[in-house]
């Protein structure tokens, strides 16, 4: 993987998501000396996606550190750093390589505060690009966010736009507890938008309402919001006004925003790229059944990746939910009576 270098971002021309992440890291590091970046190829190379482009030159080799190929270490070393008062931001190059790091997240980062009754804490961020759609090699395209959302003691945050990547990453870095920050790489360079580089975080633990509507609620996160919003626009042409919710923080889940919306529309489709079974959509559907059943006018539908191994690039567009699948589910749900 060696994608083309990021264009220099600015507020004038807007930023893509990679540039927004780069600016958020820069802003945080200027404001706080205790922030240290670690990861594979993040130094002179600026990361394989260029998220840390230029940061080593600006902040030095002490604060922007290339690690060896060593994922357990990339997640575990920051636990020690964080316990000593630093704020490490570590990068796993691709989510497909994150599995050796999970031991450190489950057994240590997530529970250091609990098990020491607050004596030692773990303000670390673990960033990882994830998801399909860029014709990447094997092991580079999976979406396994539900595995992390199952772990108590951490936050799981997924941005869906440059502005939210900027603000949510700043919030994650400022947070006194560990955050898994998953970046949909299909969106890295998908579009530009104005981002005010003012160092201001966006709230975590909070869903974002991207579109108002009264007929159906479409709930998604990360890269699938692109298809979800396209579907919502097409539904509007059919006279169905969809409310679109970006979950953004999977854990802890802001269920009240979703319940409020479904209370209004009575209908809900959940869209995610990850496999259906045990996916995070199941959690939202269960919560709707438990807490919003009387408001529901139709069964909750889920549009998700298949319960299969993620195919190699030739067939990946047949795996990823597309606008047609979202539309079909939304039409069924909207017309159910």
């Amino acid at each position: 993987m060696n994608p083309a270098s990021a264009d220099p971002g600015s507020t004038d021309t807007g930023m893509n998501m990679v540039e927004a992440i780069n600016h958020a890291l820069t802003s945080a590091m200027v404001a706080d000396d205790s922030i240290v970046l670690l990861g594979e190829d993040i130094g002179i190379n600026g990361g394989v996606f260029r998220a840390t482009d230029g940061l080593q030159a600006r902040f030095g080799k002490d604060r922007v550190r290339d690690t060896p190929l060593s994922e357990a270490l990339i997640a575990g070393l920051p636990v020690g750093l964080a316990a000593m008062g630093f704020r490490p931001v570590a990068e796993i190059q691709f989510m497909g390589f994150i599995y050796p790091a999970i031991d450190q997240i489950v057994n240590h980062a997530s529970r250091l505060r609990t098990r020491t009754r607050g004596r030692l804490t773990c303000p670390m961020v673990l960033r990882a690009p994830f998801g399909g759609g860029i014709h990447a090699p094997e092991h580079h395209s999976e979406s396994m966010e539900a595995m992390f959302a199952h772990i108590p003691g951490i936050r799981v945050v997924i941005p869906s736009s440059p502005a939210r990547a900027y603000g949510l990453l700043l919030a994650a870095i400022a947070n006194p507890d560990p955050v898994i920050f998953l970046e949909p790489k299909r969106l890295y360079r998908a579009r530009r938008e104005p981002v005010t580089d003012d160092g201001r975080p966006l709230p975590m633990d909070h869903c974002f309402k991207l579109r108002e509507g009264s007929d159906i609620t479409l709930v998604s996160w990360g890269a699938m919001l692109k298809e979800t919003i396209e579907a919502a626009d097409m539904l509007a042409g059919e006279g169905v006004e969809a409310e679109v919710i970006d979950v953004a923080t999977l854990k802890p889940l802001d269920m009240s925003t979703i319940l409020d919306s479904v209370g209004k529309t009575g209908r809900c489709v959940i869209i995610h790229e990850a496999p259906l079974t045990g996916g995070f959509g199941a959690e939202i559907a269960a919560r709707l059944a438990c807490e919003g059943l009387m408001q529901l006018l139709a069964p909750v539908e889920r549009v998700a990746g298949w319960d299969t191994v993620m195919p190699l690039p030739r067939l990946e567009t047949r795996y990823l939910p597309n606008v047609e699948r979202v539309l079909a589910a939304a039409r069924r749900t909207a017309s159910y009576s």
Partner: peptide, 8 residues
């Protein structure tokens, strides 16, 4: 790995 982090 934590020891390496403390050392760093």
């Amino acid at each position: 790995p934590h020891a390496a982090g403390v050392g760093l």
